[in-house]
């Protein structure tokens, strides 16, 4: 009885967990770093590194293949952005669309500095 239950559970496990890459080689640091910077399309809050979905597991193998065929980290990001859109990378990059994203915080910083400078050095009006 217990054994039967366990078999059912194993089937459940199988439907929950993925059919993984079959290579026995451990993943390199570069592969892990790239996986951390990619967002999973199936579990959309997680990175490829964190996710266990089929897509994420295939993506890891894909990353490995690309590295082995000589592509650099940034080239791999470019290839994937071309296929899946900017959404897939966690780095929004510099473009017209993300101009304000980078500039607004810097403006805040400059403005804050200016206000403090004025408060300290500007003589009171009489």
């Amino acid at each position: 009885m217990v054994k039967k239950k366990f078999i059912i559970l194993l089937i459940l496990f199988n439907s929950v967990f993925g059919n993984c890459y079959s290579e026995n080689e451990p993943f390199s640091k570069l592969e892990n770093d790239i996986a951390k910077n990619l967002r999973c399309l199936i579990c959309q809050g997680q990175s490829i590194y964190d996710s266990n979905s089929e897509f994420a597991l295939s993506m890891r193998v894909y990353i490995k293949d690309q590295i082995n065929s000589g592509y650099s980290e940034s080239q791999i990001y470019k290839i994937l952005v071309k296929k899946y859109g900017q959404w897939i990378v966690y780095d929004p990059g510099y473009s017209k669309k993300t101009f304000l994203l980078w500039v607004i915080p810097i403006l805040f910083f400059l403005l804050g500095g200016a206000i403090i400078y004025i408060r300290i050095y500007k003589k009171k009006k009489t």
Partner: peptide
């Protein structure tokens, strides 16, 4: 505004 979807994560 633009219907563009981007992700902002640790690198930013």
């Amino acid at each position: 505004i633009t219907s563009e979807k981007i992700s902002i994560g640790p690198p930013f």
